[in-house]
Amino acid sequence: MFHFLSQHRVLLLVLVLVLLGLHLLSSGLKHQTDVGVFGKAVLYIYSPIYQVLSWPFQKIAWLVSKYIYLVDVRDTNTRLRSQNQQLKGQLARFEELEAENQRLSALLKLKNSADPPVAYARVVGRSLTPEFRTLIIDAGTADGVGPGMAVVTAEGLVGFVAVAVPHAAKVVLITDASARVDAIIQRTRGQTMVFGRGKSQCTLEYLTDADVVNGDRIITSGIGGVFPKGITVGVVSSINRGQTSAPQGIWLLPVVDLDAVEEVAILAAKPVGEGLTR
């Protein structure tokens, strides 16, 4: 027996570690994205070291991106000038509509659904493998950030906080394969569910209304209490109707450029319900 153990000690050690990994995986499924004390400790220790060491590189990346930006700034400038003329016309119309909207909102005493952010944070890290779509931000429990909170930008929804330690937190993006967001089509008010697919786009599933067209804006429904109602998730980018009139595959392009997002706001979580599932 001892001889057998001694001969196959590496194999046995590998087996034990693989089983331990699978156990962690299994318990992680039970407790959502909770990584336990050791996982939090890794994030706690690693995040400040990484922030210090990566700072000069971030500055270099910023300079490089600005230089690349300058290379085609002339073309962009010409294009933007013509767009600017068109937008000025639209803006005048929208200002009138906004003023009208404000008057009507006040009249109906509509409550603004967006809660003020708990904290603002900078993105300090991005997931290293394409299987997972996560970010690390530099705000944590010390700033009032906790698991389950919605992460947004001015444009729209980014994701939700999975793990938080005092000065950092891990954010799961809406494009991650495990992310689900209860949503509605803004135009028709039809219910749907946004599924992350591990790609740069998401899909719409469980539509209650087949009336959906390219360009339709999808917003959070507020159901489940994780994401406040009315945050823009994305815009319908393509619809595969197959041989029937009912849409079969609907792709959604997030309004936030999740590969380039730099600063985010964190909104307070309400009791977790069916709005976010795994």
């Binding site: 050690l13 995986l25 299994s26 992680g28 050791f38 493998t129 991650d176």
Partner: peptide, 30 residues
Amino acid sequence: FIGPILAFCFGFMTDSLWGVQPGLTAATYT
């Protein structure tokens, strides 16, 4: 000995920092 333990530790760290399914990368690396 140190090889599988290192592999597991590195996988666990990756999971803790970036992963969504804890233990997945740890088991894979091992």
